[in-house]
Simulated scan of single mutants.
Amino acid sequence: MNTHQDEVFNYWDKNQLVRATAGDLVDLELPEATCQYLLEVGVAPFTTRLKQLLGFDFDHLRNNRLCTLPDHFPLGDKVPEEMRSWVLIGHCFEQLLCIEAGTGNIYLLDGTPASGFLKWFVNTSVSQLMFCITKSLDCFENARQSKKASNPVPQLKASLSDIDPDAFANQVHWWPTILNEIASGQM
């Protein structure tokens, strides 16, 4: 199981985490580790702070509406072949938050099947995503409560890149981009 499960449970109220049911996962081609994490640990509940700061809303999981991309779009047959088994779990700043079925990688998708999709790599797994979200919120809350004025982003980048190096392997991936926007005051 996830090595960061205890830290996630220490930050979030374990009973408030949103978990999948076995029925939610039927017919979805997700890696076993992804399914196990969604069943046993889950993802963050909706909070205004999470939505405002990082943009995440696991609304499809929360509302028992996990589905593949073709099931989500009226023109599902136009979804590119390599994305047909991707699973929609929510949104982030109006972009689709998806799990790539074969690998468990997390991506944001912007666009539609008709116009094409812009893919944005986020994390290597749902467990890494949850731990990065948890560490980020904790870091920003501690910085807000601190009496010293400091920018927590450089330290947070270093911490998160240790957690999921692939998420920081390219500066145009989601985490480096969003943290740079937060540090520059664009968010």
Rank of each mutant, 00 (worst) to 15 (best):
14 K>E: 14
150 S>Q: 11
86 W>Y: 13
20 A>R: 08
78 K>Y: 08
31 P>G: 08
22 A>W: 05
140 F>I: 08
154 P>N: 01
96 L>Q: 14
145 Q>R: 11
14 K>C: 07
129 L>S: 10
51 K>E: 13
128 Q>T: 09
127 S>C: 08
159 S>T: 15
153 V>S: 05
93 F>Q: 15
87 V>T: 15
74 P>F: 15
183 A>T: 03
159 S>V: 07
153 V>M: 03
37 Y>C: 01
97 L>C: 00
181 E>G: 14
19 R>G: 00
115 S>L: 13
81 E>Q: 12
53 L>F: 09
97 L>F: 02
156 L>M: 06
60 H>G: 03
113 P>L: 02
142 N>S: 11
14 K>M: 08
113 P>Q: 00
130 M>F: 08
103 T>R: 06
109 L>R: 02
66 L>Q: 01
184 S>W: 03
69 L>W: 01
49 R>E: 14
52 Q>H: 12
124 T>M: 04
6 D>A: 15
162 D>T: 13
54 L>Q: 03
22 A>F: 08
113 P>A: 04
11 Y>M: 03
51 K>C: 06
140 F>W: 10
184 S>Y: 00
98 C>Y: 01
64 N>Q: 12
146 S>H: 02
32 E>K: 13
178 I>E: 12
18 V>H: 07
178 I>G: 10
147 K>S: 15
87 V>H: 07
95 Q>N: 04
129 L>A: 10
151 N>V: 06
85 S>K: 11
85 S>Q: 10
108 L>D: 10
181 E>Q: 14
119 K>V: 02
112 T>L: 11
58 F>K: 04
139 C>S: 15
74 P>G: 13
146 S>T: 03
47 T>A: 05
105 N>W: 01
151 N>C: 12
128 Q>N: 14
107 Y>M: 03
99 I>N: 04
64 N>I: 01
134 T>A: 09
79 V>H: 04
132 C>G: 09
104 G>H: 10
178 I>W: 10
3 T>K: 13
117 F>A: 02
37 Y>N: 06
151 N>L: 05
75 L>P: 01
49 R>G: 01
123 N>R: 00
20 A>P: 04
15 N>I: 03
175 W>T: 06
157 K>W: 09
60 H>T: 01
178 I>D: 04
142 N>H: 11
80 P>L: 05
55 G>D: 07
129 L>M: 12
59 D>N: 15
34 T>Y: 01
69 L>G: 05
21 T>H: 00
137 L>Q: 13
24 D>Y: 14
121 F>D: 01
127 S>D: 15
46 F>K: 11
123 N>C: 03
116 G>N: 05
56 F>W: 02
101 A>Q: 06
174 W>N: 06
94 E>T: 13
159 S>C: 08
108 L>H: 00
39 L>Y: 09
160 L>T: 08
71 D>G: 11
90 G>P: 06
22 A>D: 14
78 K>T: 07
39 L>E: 03
